[in-house]
Design a protein around this nucleic acid. Structure first.
Lengths: 152, 152
DNA sequence: AGAAACCCTGTAGCTACTATAGAGTCAACA
DNA sequence: TGTTGACTCTATAGTAGCTACAGGGTTTCT
């Protein structure tokens, strides 16, 4: 099948498929006379594996690792478990962080003396204070999980 | 004060300060004879405002908006409240999403017939299935909140 | 005077895509 | 046969919010 059909079947944008190929996550398919990519059933499976992992918010690096483990069938699944456990702990940590955040934001929200002018707004006043709650932790470890915003 | 001192005081990397200036979030300071940036007390306050917002995971766009509201003192704080409420709802939504994710991951984790070879690993088998839980929602709204991973 | 520590600009890199531009291919229809 | 339209190709740039150079200039200390 051609890339468009694969894209429809796997519910994945065409450009994303080509991107995975460039990144070495998806094996290069054969080409038609007109230089179109021609995919087989195994490509679909492979792609669906990747998409399933991504839907669980794993990073492409993690997916890459899983794909490698998948291809070394003699090894034990200890590493698969380890990878998954680590990922779960990333998620749990992020949930804790966000709960903290939510609490702080709700406190902040209550600072507003509703309806007044901006000059008296308790929220802006509060924000101008240096709370510095962990702001400067230079070595703050970064998370790979998706961020919060929706740029509409 | 020079940029290094500002950086130390506000617990913010020097490059980040210059980046905020480029982005128009921090007003351009004066320069010394040797072309060094020279900051005043108000710059420190301004920077701390930004960092406080960022520590609450607001996007730079949101920070920009707040800064504008701050500079129009006659307006009412309705817009400040609105912005904050929206941000809180972003955070809450992301928490719900991650809880869901955590649940799925824990279910998956239990699929492994511990200690066996990769060939029999229930986790990999499960991942190869097309769960497609929302994988293909083309219009999935993006969040601006930080992702989960820590690239070590 | 020389070295260390600071500062400058400009550019490239990070993640995981997404979105063009500009061109080629293929099937169907008049 | 020509042409329209849908599809595909490569290459490049953009997104967020920094971070990390390279290759220079300035200041400060000894």
């Amino acid at each position: 099948m051609k890339i468009g059909e694969l894209a429809m079947t796997a519910l994945t944008p065409v450009e994303t498929i080509r991107y995975y190929e460039r990144e070495g996550l998806l094996p290069k398919p054969g080409r038609s006379d007109g230089n179109y990519r021609i995919y087989e059933a195994q490509h679909l499976e492979h792609l669906q594996f990747i998409r399933h992992c991504r839907s669980l918010d794993m990073s492409l690096a993690e997916v890459r690792e899983l794909l490698m483990l998948k291809n070394s069938p003699l090894e034990s699944c200890g590493n698969v478990n380890r990878l998954l456990d680590e990922h779960i702990s990333h998620v749990s940590r992020r949930i804790r962080e966000l709960r903290q955040l939510e609490k702080q934001l709700k406190v902040l929200r209550r600072q507003c003396g509703d309806g007044g002018a901006v000059n008296d707004c308790g929220i802006l006043a509060e924000l101008a204070h240096a709370s510095q709650d962990g702001v400067g932790e230079t070595k703050k470890r970064k998370s790979h999980l998706k961020a919060v915003h929706h740029p509409t």
